[in-house]
C-alpha cells in the first residue's frame, strides 16, 4: 500500500491529532471526517493509513467506519440524494420517494446502502431524521433541502437541477 498525500492535507491530519494529547486513538473520527471530505470516501488504504498513524490495529478503524453510516466505503455519484426514512417520513412516503429516485436516476444496489447509477451521476441513500418531520417526506440533494417530495413529477422536477 502506498498512498501519497499532499503536505497540506497531512498537516491537517497531524494538527487534528494534537487535539487529543491523552490518547491518539480519539482522533480516529476527526481523521475519518477529514479524509472523507478530501477524497469523498474511505478506502481500504485510508483505513490502513489512519490505523498506522494512530498506532492502532486496522480493525479498530474499520469498526468505526462500519458503525457510522455517514462514512462511505466507495466513491459516490456526482449528486448525492439523501432520503429521510425516520418515522414521520417513513409514514409520509419515504420508501416511495426512495424507490422513485432510484428509478428516475437508474441507481442500483441494496436499499440499505448507497445506490449509485451506472453513469456515476447519482447516489440515492437513506438517512435518518433531517429535522423537518412536519413536511414529510423530505430529502436533501447535495447540500440543498427539499420538503414534501410526494410525487414522481416533483421528483423529476427536482432532478432537472442536478444534471
Amino acid at each position: 500500500m502506498s498512498i501519497s498525500l499532499t503536505p497540506d492535507f497531512e498537516k491537517k491530519l497531524d494538527e487534528a491529532i494534537t487535539h487529543y494529547p491523552v490518547s491518539k486513538r480519539s482522533a480516529a473520527l476527526p481523521l475519518l471526517h477529514l479524509w472523507q471530505e478530501q477524497f469523498g470516501y474511505i478506502s481500504d488504504e485510508a483505513i490502513e493509513f489512519i490505523a498506522k498513524k494512530l498506532e492502532v490495529q486496522s480493525i479498530h478503524i474499520l469498526e468505526l467506519v462500519t458503525f457510522y453510516p455517514m462514512f462511505r466505503r466507495e466513491p459516490i455519484g456526482k449528486h448525492h440524494i439523501k432520503v429521510c426514512r425516520t418515522l414521520s417520513c417513513a409514514l409520509g412516503g419515504a420508501h416511495e420517494a426512495h424507490a422513485c429516485m432510484k428509478k428516475l436516476t437508474g441507481a442500483q444496489g441494496d436499499d440499505h446502502g448507497p445506490c449509485t447509477s451506472p453513469d456515476g451521476k447519482y447516489t440515492v441513500e437513506y438517512v435518518e431524521c433531517l429535522a423537518s418531520c412536519g413536511t414529510a417526506p423530505v430529502m436533501m440533494i447535495n447540500e440543498e433541502f427539499y420538503e414534501n417530495v410526494n410525487s414522481e413529477e416533483k421528483a423529476k422536477e427536482l432532478l432537472k437541477k442536478y444534471q
Binding site: 480493525i59 479498530h60 458503525f67
Partner: peptide, 9 residues
C-alpha cells in the same frame, strides 16, 4: 494482540 473487533452496527 488487539486484532479482533466488532464491525457493523
Amino acid at each position: 494482540d488487539d486484532v479482533l473487533g466488532i464491525v457493523n452496527r
